[in-house]
Design a binder for these strands. Structure first.
Lengths: 133, 133
DNA sequence: GTGAATGCAAACTCTTTGCATGACT
DNA sequence: AGTCATGCAAAGAGTTTGCATTCAC
């Protein structure tokens, strides 16, 4: 794998959990998933693995405004998506939009910041909650 | 002021602090500001005032991915901006971009979510840090 | 054998809540 | 008077860190 890092069962289990759980997961979700599989990986190891993977660019760390970090696997293709959050039920839906990406790219060229990444979160109400409102 | 809410010195001081401190401030910054002015407003009252003001739409609450909430006065005009964060020194700069807003608006019309708000954060390196790197 | 990774528990930060006191209408 | 807001302190949630032990290379 990557230079300077060892493979270990806990680490592999965290990676497997991230892959399986997919988009926009919390550290707690990973812990619950692993605990359900009788794996006694400590919370600290999960955070340490996430921090490492984020540093290596293998997972994306972000934040939906609910005071807890979210993670998801980074696509090797470089493609990425953003998230819509339902403020009623908390549901999170991914979306992607080329026009939005283009606007960001164009903006990045105009500013004196060296823009390396961007996070976009849409807040609103999901179809289900709209229907039952 | 608004129906059902009383005026009080602590509340006014929090409002004054938000106005004076401006863009992208933390609860701690407000507390420090008030403490420096010999005002012994409790942290809890600051949070309660912020929660109220956010609910009334007078301040905007958001989050820069550093595990702490940010606040800023909401412009009555409805205009709003977003933020660029320097990942080296932590500096936060506001920016606005019409093309970006238009892309969001257009996207909102295409999705089945009822989009009510959006947060955009650009991460990168500010000019100062680029120069000293 | 050596250094990295782990698990546990304690520490920390940010935020919220319970409760008795004090203030506004 | 009655209600709402305050301050303090304690409680919570999420995340990080210290340390002895275990494991990979």
């Amino acid at each position: 794998m990557e230079a300077g890092h060892r493979t270990s069962a806990p680490r592999d289990e965290v990676i497997e959990a991230i892959d399986r759980l997919g988009c926009s997961i919390t550290a707690r979700a990973i812990a619950d998933h692993l605990r359900a599989r009788e794996s006694n990986v400590g919370l600290a190891s999960i955070y340490r693995a996430l921090e490492l993977l984020d540093r290596l660019g293998l997972v994306q760390r972000f934040d939906l405004g609910d005071g807890g970090a979210r993670y998801e696997p980074a696509l090797p293709s470089g493609e990425h998506h953003h998230h819509m959050v339902c403020d009623s039920c908390g549901k999170v839906e991914p979306f992607e939009d080329d026009a939005l990406e283009r606007a960001i790219t164009h903006l990045s060229g105009k500013t004196d910041f060296a823009v390396a990444a961007h996070d976009i979160t849409l807040h609103g109400e999901c179809p289900d909650c709209r229907a039952s409102a």
